[in-house]
Simulated scan of single mutants.
Amino acid sequence: MAVLDFFVEESLVAKGAEAELWSGTMLGMPVVIKRRTSKAYRDPALDFKLRVNRTFEEGRLISKAYMAGVSVPAPLFIDPINFMIVEDYVKGELLRDVVERKGLMHSVGVEVAKMHGAGIVHGDLTTSNVLITSEDKPVIIDFGLGAFSNDVEDLGVDVLLMKKSLEANVPAKAGALYDEFMKGYREVAGAASEEVYKRAEEIERRGRYFQERAID
């Protein structure tokens, strides 16, 4: 489906709760297109406003991350009115499928710390939202739940999400891989990393407490 003269959507790659992901071309270059979809249960005016605002915000997040030197897909075209973000196509494997490869989690920790240093939190930082290129370079993807924040609580949530993702994917090696992740994070974040690490532990304890209370 042609959207602009220089832009073509070719095939649907994935369909999530909030958006569709398409492969396509832009000026002959391979790209990925994310388009936020309408929700029939929402008031049409509210639906339009939410999709415009969320597309705009996600575009700002990935643009700032890219400009700050964080390893993310290059944002090429952002069109909030059509609920669309076009990014450079990154060929790679999901981190979840190669997470035990030597040195990867250290590199992921470095990129996450750079992202946090730019005042950005991801909001869904799991092994499914990091691509690994053929050069073993991590690329953070899907900022749909992200936000601008320097709040240590938000930073701690990101770190805890990665820890929980590791525990779900590779329970036997999650501890060592998380340590590797935090080592890379500390190299960039320095002394500030300890507060983030401790806050992640605190958030995890809170979660356990409320789970136990619910069971009681």
Rank of each mutant, 00 (worst) to 15 (best):
M1S: 12
D5V: 10
D5G: 15
F7Q: 06
F7L: 15
F7R: 06
S11D: 07
L12K: 15
A17W: 09
E18C: 09
T25F: 00
M26H: 01
V31Q: 01
V32C: 06
V32A: 14
V32T: 11
R42I: 04
P44K: 02
A45P: 01
L46P: 00
N53S: 09
R54S: 08
E57Q: 15
S63K: 13
V72M: 07
A74F: 07
L76S: 00
L76D: 00
F77T: 01
F77G: 01
D79M: 10
P80G: 08
P80R: 10
N82R: 13
V90C: 03
V90W: 01
L94F: 12
R96I: 12
D97K: 13
V98A: 09
R101D: 03
G103I: 04
H106R: 14
S107H: 15
G109Y: 06
V110S: 11
V112F: 03
K114S: 08
M115I: 12
H116I: 13
H116F: 14
G119Q: 06
G119F: 05
L125S: 13
S128E: 15
S128T: 13
L131N: 05
I132H: 09
S134G: 07
D136M: 11
K137T: 10
K137P: 02
P138Y: 07
I141F: 02
I141K: 02
F143M: 09
L145M: 13
A147W: 01
F148A: 06
F148G: 08
N150Q: 12
D151C: 08
V152P: 00
D154V: 13
D154R: 15
D154Y: 12
V157G: 08
D158W: 11
D158C: 05
L161Y: 11
L161F: 11
M162G: 13
K163M: 15
S165E: 08
L166N: 05
E167T: 09
A168T: 14
V170Y: 09
P171G: 02
P171A: 04
A172N: 10
G175A: 04
D179C: 11
G190M: 11
K198W: 05
R199A: 01
E201R: 12
E202R: 06
I203V: 09
E204A: 15
R205F: 05
R206A: 14
R208H: 11
D216K: 13
